[in-house]
Design a protein around this nucleic acid. Structure first.
Lengths: 250, 250
DNA sequence: CTCACACATTGATTAAAATCAAGTATAGCA
DNA sequence: TGCTATACTTGATTTTAATCAATGTGTGAG
């Protein structure tokens, strides 16, 4: 595992959060101008992973959280039996590894879905710093609780919603995350394979494929491989909302 | 809503974490002997709720986290359509409200499943204190990340496992939580209704009922209403594990 | 005590998505 | 450039659990 070795190399590069285009999405957003240097002091920047490489592996010693700089990452849990459950997709500006902060070892495996660069935050230093910067501590709580909420939302989706509703919800989630980065919210390229989508949403690949074509036939989206165009965002929102009405049987 | 009013009363009682029997499960476990008083200073203790009363309501201003002292709590999200998703059950020593720390408002509703007493931790004071006590801060990160993991585990259960596997997993989870409190891990009374179990596990009530009787016929459990006896814990563990083998198709 | 209501169980039928089974497209590589 | 492996799509069949429908049980209020 080449990436395991690489994981322990100490990059000599000092990050420049000030100049980073993601500073309004990433941790710097919670740090005052004049404290930014203290954050930069603990960050190791510029690590690059190729498609398929692991940023970290489940059950290896937990050292750091990682912020996505470019590219994208999927996290997944592997059971004893070898069964995989994708637990999340992470895009630029998002922080990976928060679910591991309760243990000595990573709770999941993080894999680059494409060529991906990350900034590394060693957790001991990060904790030390959040102890000194209340705003940053607050932001960490914020991010972690956000992740709990996301996960509850996913559980909800999995337990109450049809295949169409789940996929519509995922497309809308991706859309809004592209928008945050000031990229087109209606015209983007999926970083993950159908298989990953299926696994994440608790569906079979075939079902995902069928729903994509169904949406396409209904003129809601246009999809060719990983290229997706959302033609009718309202319709997608309707799909995700309809289930709620049913539950209420009005 | 009587409880909404009660929520804002300030209890004059000062907590005595030192004497609390749950101090080895709850927040005090992360606080040094001589700092315990600082924790006690910010806790309001002794709030009691009757079965069915709300500890807090989704979308009301987020003020505090609550530790369960006795009884039990269920948390759930309500969608626009009125659909409910149970997101967790909380037993003595466990902390409720961590999923709300990202927002100004509670992300879920917490409801007492039986007569329940709680200790209240106002979040502004708690954050202030965790900034001063690194151990406590570390513990908060620990608890929150634990909750992310639990939720991922639930997502896994919902997306990959059969009704039997989900219910076996829940019974084992409850069992181990009773054990932590030095109560019988094989002979306990479920705090929640079949309906709540069904909702939590993404099943219909009827299915839960059927699985209970099936387990009973197989001699794995004995169940009468909410009273449950685990007759064959190994068998239950087998049930939860079998699915993993299938996934690996060995 | 018993009535009413919520909770729980059981059975029959249905539906949504999984699985099984090909077949097609695509991308990376020699 | 063509080849191979992987990713994706489509169709037929099966399965699990939902839904519909009814009945049973327990509990708390009057």
């Amino acid at each position: 595992m080449a990436q395991a070795i690489r994981l322990h190399q100490v990059s000599p590069l000092k990050a420049s959060c000030q100049q980073c285009s993601l500073s309004n999405l990433c941790l710097p957003l919670a740090v005052e101008e004049n404290d930014l240097e203290r954050l930069e002091d603990i960050v190791q920047q510029g690590r690059i992973f190729n498609r398929g490489e692991h940023i970290f592996d489940q059950s290896t010693p937990f050292r750091s959280c990682f912020a996505v700089k470019s590219g994208s990452i999927k996290t997944s849990i592997i059971t004893e039996g070898g069964d995989e459950q994708v637990t999340g997709f992470f895009m630029p500006g998002e922080l990976v590894g928060l679910d591991s902060m309760s243990s000595e070892h990573y709770a999941c495996t993080a894999k680059a879905l494409e060529r991906t660069s990350v900034c590394e935050f060693p957790v001991d230093k990060l904790e030390e710093l959040t102890g000194k910067l209340p705003e940053l501590q607050h932001h960490m709580y914020h991010l972690m609780s956000q992740e709990i909420q996301n996960s509850h939302q996913l559980a909800m989706l999995l337990s109450k919603n049809t295949a169409e509703e789940r996929i519509a919800a995922l497309l809308l989630s991706l859309s809004s995350r592209f928008r945050r980065r000031r990229m087109s919210p209606t015209n983007f390229s999926l970083p993950m394979a159908r298989n990953d989508i299926a696994n994440f949403l608790g569906l079979a690949v075939e079902t995902v494929s069928r729903v994509f074509t169904r949406f396409q036939n209904q003129g809601i989206i246009r999809a060719k491989g990983r290229e997706v165009e959302l033609l009718d965002v309202e319709a997608l929102q309707m799909v995700t909302r309809d289930f709620a009405r049913q539950g209420c049987q009005q």
